[in-house]
Amino acid sequence: MRAVLCKALTGPDDLVVEQVDDPVAGAGQLLIDVKAAGLNFPDILITQGKYQFKPELPFTPGGEGAGVVAAVGDGVDGVAVGDRVIFNHLTGAFAEKIAVPATTCVPFPDAMPFDVAAGLTITYGTSYHALKDRAALQAGETVLVLGAAGGVGLAAVELAKAMGARVIAAASTDEKLAVCTAHGADETVNYTTTDLKAALKELTGGRGVDVVYDPVGGDFTEVAVRGMAPGGRLLVIGFAAGDIPKIPINLCLLKQCALVGVFWGAWATANPQGQRANMQDLFAMFTDGRIKPLVDDVHGLDDVRAAYAALTGRRAKGKVILTP
Rank of each mutant, 00 (worst) to 15 (best):
L120C: 13
G151K: 01
D33R: 15
C252K: 05
F220N: 10
H183D: 06
I291Y: 05
D302C: 01
R314Q: 06
G38S: 03
A130F: 06
E202S: 14
N250D: 12
G82N: 06
T142V: 11
A117E: 09
G147Q: 13
T188G: 09
V100N: 02
G65V: 05
T126G: 06
P109L: 04
V223N: 06
D303A: 15
L39S: 07
L200V: 05
R166V: 07
G261T: 05
Q256V: 02
Y124H: 12
G184P: 03
Q138P: 00
T221L: 04
A149H: 02
Q19H: 13
G65D: 06
A277T: 14
A284M: 01
L90G: 07
F114N: 02
V320E: 09
A241W: 00
P324T: 08
C252Y: 14
L5S: 09
I122D: 07
A224I: 03
I98C: 05
D133L: 00
Y128S: 12
D13H: 12
T103Y: 08
P61Y: 12
K317W: 00
V145A: 13
A309K: 12
I244Y: 04
P293F: 01
T91N: 10
G11R: 00
Q256A: 14
A284Q: 10
T126Y: 04
C105N: 06
F41T: 05
V179W: 07
D214M: 00
K7L: 03
T193K: 13
I291A: 08
N250S: 11
T10P: 04
V179P: 00
R305G: 07
V34G: 11
F94E: 12
Q273T: 14
V298Q: 13
F59D: 06
L235G: 11
A139I: 06
